[in-house]
Design a protein around this nucleic acid. Structure first.
Lengths: 225, 225
DNA sequence: CCAAAAGTGTTCCGTCTACACCCATGG
DNA sequence: CCATGGGTGTAGACGGAACACTTTTGG
């Protein structure tokens, strides 16, 4: 038999990228207005079609690279969305990926080139098709993993102060945390190492810079914040 | 423009069903040997292709119905798998779904008809393509949600004893739990209601039968085991 | 009468929470 | 010299873990 599967249907498959960054005590999402039909002018995630020579991860990495100019971004599959009417023009099944980046590494020219905006999570407008659902699911996933996987460091520079770390933590979970209790917990985590370096930018007194030891983590992937 | 997307590729999309049940103090997975190429004779999940007139959930429900004769099964998306070589014959992107059923509701004639076996989780053979990865991911997801979502009741009859509940809990998490502590926790959960009924099958003395109040749960979806 | 499963409380320990003041420095 | 952010400890509450014996009844 030449084609076992030919009685079945084929589908366009796309990836949609939920790119999150931290700035100014808030988590922000990279959004743009659609340039093409369907949904022209509506706020939407940046996406792209999967091509025949690439895996889903490759498609997602390619799309993220177009969008950010970065490689090796932290990225995680959120889910697949395949309702019949999710794309008003044609049937498209879409895989949502969530990426976390350090917003300072992001080249703002690319943002301007693609005509995108960083929008605070609590100010997200209605999005095209089911993109809003994707975003909500992604946020819930991040929140539920923040305490057991070292996600948070993807939102920060390599060197960070404990105050920065706490602010990002609060931005992800939404709420306030006691400073002393937070620092007590961090001190117990050997993977978060204090360096000799001092950050003098954000405070006059200077704050110790810390680093996440990702090599040690790779050897023993245990993490509890 | 007549076809916005025609420059892009289309793909076969399938669903693969991870059906879990509880029996004899173990979680079991429904597996069969593939009847067709590719991979004929290898152990594999039961699956089916998504057709053009159905959503992913509809395809998954249809496939589960073929397999179990049941509708309204608890089911959850595990992930999408799209590596280039995952199906040796043609490019197929597959969505894995995990279903939990009460094994006593399962019509064994269907198992025989499809030539399937219930296999304990710790005795799972090497599976076709990436099915093993799907199963591992599904198990981890169940384990991580068992304490915050009322999954466990899908593996039990409507009426169950606390001992049964505990055995299923232990089978999911793998490990033992103290009986008194477990029962103390259960008593605090208003959604788990003691009935007047007594089960005399598994013990001479008789054990109180309990029920999960799923209607109350729907009104306020909070659950903490 | 005994095997087999049901049912029941208390103590201890570790973890999380609440809480307020001094320090260093740049401007 | 003062405004700004950095840094530190303790006491009480709470929740989870350890632990053993009595009850009922079918066979």
């Amino acid at each position: 038999m030449e084609n076992y599967y030919s009685e079945h249907s084929k589908f366009y498959v796309s990836v949609d990228c939920i790119v999150l960054g931290y700035h100014d005590k808030e988590l922000k999402l990279l959004l743009g207005k659609r340039k093409l039909e369907p949904g022209r002018g509506e706020w939407a995630l940046y996406g792209g079609f999967v091509e025949s020579d690439e895996s889903l991860e490759e498609a997602s990495n390619r799309t993220l690279f177009e969008l950010t100019g970065m490689k090796n971004i932290y990225m995680r599959q959120v889910g697949v969305y395949g309702n019949l009417d999710r794309d008003p023009f044609d049937r498209v099944i879409s895989v949502a990926y969530c990426a976390l980046i350090n917003i300072n590494d992001y080249d703002d020219n690319l943002r301007i080139k693609h005509d995108l905006e960083w929008i605070s999570l609590n100010k997200i407008p209605t999005l095209f098709a089911d993109h809003g659902k994707m975003v909500n699911t992604a946020i819930k996933q991040i929140q539920s993993r923040i305490n057991t996987e070292p996600l948070i460091f993807n939102l920060l520079p390599d060197l960070f102060t404990l105050t920065q770390l706490q602010h990002v933590y609060e931005a992800v979970l939404g709420g306030e945390t006691d400073k002393r209790n937070f620092r007590k917990r961090i001190k117990q985590i050997a993977l978060i190492e204090k360096t000799e370096l001092i950050d003098k930018v954000t405070s006059k007194r200077g704050a110790a810079l810390y680093r996440f030891n990702s090599k040690a983590y790779k050897n023993d992937t245990f993490f509890k914040l």
